[in-house]
Amino acid sequence: MTPELQPDVPLLEVLIYGVLNPATIVVAFLMGRRVDAKNKVLLAAFIGAAAGSLLLYIATFFQIWDAPTLGRSIAGTFIVSLIAGYVYAAAGYWSKR
């Protein structure tokens, strides 16, 4: 059973799933603490966004919580997670210093 593809996606749901994803927050912050140069923060953000998207896909696949429109909006959720992950990774980078 894969996520459903639906024609309409609430953008607030995409924003909330992207910004408040615990996998994105934790992975991006911890990867941000491990980078040794400022230009690698974007890579940490990408890894955090990928981990967050994977968590949301697994949660949708196994129907752990009610995320019915996630299949249609996974690209938007990834983009929002990437932007938020950059903030979290930068916070991790600057907290190390």
Rank of each mutant, 00 (worst) to 15 (best):
I58N: 05
A44V: 09
A50R: 08
F78M: 04
N39V: 04
L70Q: 12
I47N: 05
A45N: 03
A28D: 11
S73R: 01
F62G: 03
F78P: 01
A75Q: 05
N39L: 06
A50C: 11
I25N: 06
G71D: 10
K38M: 06
D66L: 02
N39K: 10
L43N: 07
S53W: 14
F46H: 05
G18F: 03
I47Q: 09
N39P: 02
L30R: 05
L43G: 10
N39S: 08
F78R: 01
A45C: 02
L55S: 11
P22C: 03
L43F: 13
L20C: 10
L55N: 02
A45T: 04
A51W: 03
A44E: 02
M31F: 15
T77L: 02
W65G: 12
V26P: 01
T24H: 03
F29A: 08
T24E: 03
A23F: 13
V41M: 03
A37Q: 09
N21H: 12
T69M: 02
I25K: 05
V26C: 04
A50N: 09
W65K: 08
F46A: 15
V19F: 13
K38E: 09
Q63A: 13
R33M: 14
A28L: 08
D36V: 08
G18S: 06
A37C: 04
P22M: 01
V35T: 13
A67E: 07
F62S: 08
D36A: 13
M31A: 14
I25C: 05
F62Y: 12
G52C: 04
G52D: 04
L20V: 10
G71T: 11
S53L: 14
Y57D: 02
R33P: 00
I58D: 01
N39G: 07
A59N: 11
T60G: 15
L30I: 08
A28Y: 09
A23Y: 04
A67F: 10
K40M: 10
F61Y: 13
T69N: 08
Y57W: 12
L42P: 04
M31W: 08
A51N: 03
P68Y: 08
K38F: 09
S53Q: 09
Y57I: 10
A37L: 03
L30K: 05
L30M: 14
T24S: 08
N39I: 06
L70A: 15
L20K: 00
A51Q: 03
I79H: 01
V19T: 14
A67Q: 11
V19M: 14
S53A: 12
V27K: 01
S73Q: 10
F61A: 13
V80Q: 12
F62Q: 07
T24A: 09
A45L: 04
A45V: 05
L30N: 02
G76C: 04
